[in-house]
């Protein structure tokens, strides 16, 4: 699998530029996403990882154009969504598709699989007749490994299993031949046994169709499997705290939060640890602070094992490139790690 390439002039396929989302509620403003910069190139996969409530779904919805951000810009092929004309908007809508988490809610219960797939094909003039739509729908179902497709086309969602429904939802996202699919926890509602099959199918789409993915998950094991050859962005309370190549982030996590997430994945081999060992890796608290009352300085400091008083609770660490030994292209936002790396650099 390739890492994905930027187009000839270097513009990424989709770019989030200082995107913010503030929800106004009765209790106060909830900053769900607080300045996120991310980009995906053609055919690339970007995994967004984080605990529930960290803003990864909101970020994904903004990227897919389902919710306009309250701040910042979303650029598709270098053009900001908010400045697009109707013609460009149609191109964007066809280029970026979203797969919901819950396949029980994302399919219209009163429409057959064929009706669900045929509607976008007919609407966008990709199918000229009912027969044509039927044949294309068959091919789409084959792409998502629902065989034989004829058996599924006349079924209603309630006649399908969760895994089959999610495949239909993916097939629907593929109808307009998108260059990017944003998948929001697309596997989390499925049984573990079905999950792997769906992930394999999505990986196959990546290689065969060259579709780019923004893949949202709370499960690092899934991110590691699906994000191979791509990049990973770890989010905490509405911000990206670590960003880099999937393999490197998982093999050699730098931000204490990423380490904590990786430690939460049970492994057979306990020696598989990062730079800081033992005691220091234990979180000081498990409670996620409320978005209504964010901690001062680094928002992770109340839970962080590397917390240093006077530094972490006062200054907000920026997300900046960090020279990790043997690695490349890593962004981390942590005062302590940055100092440690700088010291190690001086010592050598």
């Amino acid at each position: 699998m390739t890492t994905g390439t930027a187009s000839a002039d270097g513009t990424p396929l989709l770019q989030l530029d200082a995107v913010e989302q503030v929800f106004r509620t009765k209790k106060g403003d909830v900053p769900a996403v607080r300045g996120v910069d991310l980009h995906v190139n053609e055919g690339e996969v970007l995994c967004l990882v984080g605990e529930s409530g960290c803003g990864k779904t909101t970020t994904a919805r903004i990227a897919a154009g389902l919710a306009p951000p309250t701040g910042g810009r979303v650029l598709y092929r270098g053009r900001a969504l908010s400045e697009m004309g109707s013609e460009e908007k149609v191109q964007y809508r066809r280029g970026v598709q979203f797969v919901h988490q819950d396949p029980y809610a994302s399919l219209n219960p009163i429409r057959t699989v064929f009706a669900t797939l045929a509607a976008p094909l007919r609407k966008h003039g990709l199918a000229t007749s009912r027969k044509d739509a039927w044949e294309q729908a068959c091919r789409l179902l084959e792409q998502v490994d629902l065989r034989p497709p004829e058996n599924f086309l006349s079924k209603y969602p309630h006649q399908l299993s969760g895994g089959q429904r999610q495949r239909v939802a993916v097939a629907r996202a593929l109808t307009l031949k998108p260059s990017l699919i944003v998948a929001d926890e697309a596997t989390s509602m499925l049984d573990v046994s079905i999950r792997v099959g769906l992930l394999k199918m999505l990986s196959k789409l990546r290689t065969e169709l060259g579709t780019g993915f923004v893949f949202i998950t709370h499960d690092l094991a899934i991110a590691r499997y699906f994000g191979t050859g791509g990049r990973i962005a770890v989010m905490y309370l509405g911000r990206v705290v670590e960003h880099g190549l999937t393999e490197e982030v998982i093999e050699n996590p730098q931000h204490p939060y990423t380490r904590a997430l990786l430690d939460a994945v049970p492994t057979m081999d306990d020696d598989e640890v990062g730079a800081v060992a033992g005691e220091a890796r234990k979180l000081r608290g498990v409670d996620i602070p409320s978005l209504l009352a964010l901690p001062s300085g680094c928002t992770f400091h109340p839970r962080c094992p590397l917390f240093r008083e006077g530094l972490c609770d006062t200054a907000d660490p920026p997300l900046e490139p960090l020279a990790v030994a043997g690695g490349a292209d890593r962004d981390v936002s942590c005062h302590v790690v940055r100092e440690a790396v700088a010291e190690a650099g001086r010592a050598s």
Binding site: L66, Q97, S106, L107, P109, A119, P120, K123, H124, L176
Partner: peptide, 15 residues
């Protein structure tokens, strides 16, 4: 969500 999906497929308001 199925309405959101239909919207992101640009099926048109009336549809």
């Amino acid at each position: 969500e199925f309405v959101e999906a239909a919207r992101s497929l640009d099926l048109g308001t009336l549809r």
